[in-house]
Amino acid sequence: MALIVNYDGFRLDESMADAYFEMVAELQAKHYTTTTRYTTSAFMRMKLGEALFSRHAAAHVFETHAEASEFLSTR
Rank of each mutant, 00 (worst) to 15 (best):
S73P: 03
A2F: 15
E26A: 13
T64V: 00
F53T: 14
S54L: 14
T39V: 03
Y20H: 09
G49E: 00
L52T: 03
I4E: 01
F71R: 02
R37I: 07
Y38W: 04
E26K: 14
Y32G: 02
A19G: 05
R37K: 13
A17D: 06
L3A: 05
H60L: 09
L27V: 06
T39H: 01
A42Q: 09
M46E: 15
N6T: 05
H65D: 08
L52V: 04
M44F: 11
F21V: 08
Y32P: 00
A58K: 12
H56K: 15
M16F: 14
A66D: 04
F53G: 14
A51G: 05
A66T: 01
A25W: 04
V24K: 12
H31R: 13
M23L: 07
E14G: 08
T39L: 01
K30A: 14
Y38L: 00
T40F: 05
A57D: 09
Y20W: 08
A2T: 14
S41K: 04
M44V: 14
T64E: 00
L3E: 03
Q28T: 12
F21K: 06
T36Y: 01
L52R: 04
A58C: 08
H65P: 01
N6Y: 04
T36Q: 02
A58G: 11
L27D: 07
F43N: 14
L72S: 02
S41C: 07
A57Q: 15
T74P: 06
K47I: 11
D13P: 06
S15I: 06
A58E: 11
E63V: 09
A59V: 11
D18E: 12
A59K: 11
T34V: 15
A17C: 06
T39S: 05
E67I: 09
A42L: 08
L52S: 01
V5D: 06
R37T: 08
S73R: 11
E14Q: 13
Y20M: 06
M23D: 07
A25E: 10
M23I: 01
L12A: 05
E22I: 12
A57N: 10
F10Q: 01
G49I: 03
T35K: 12
H56Q: 15
L48A: 04
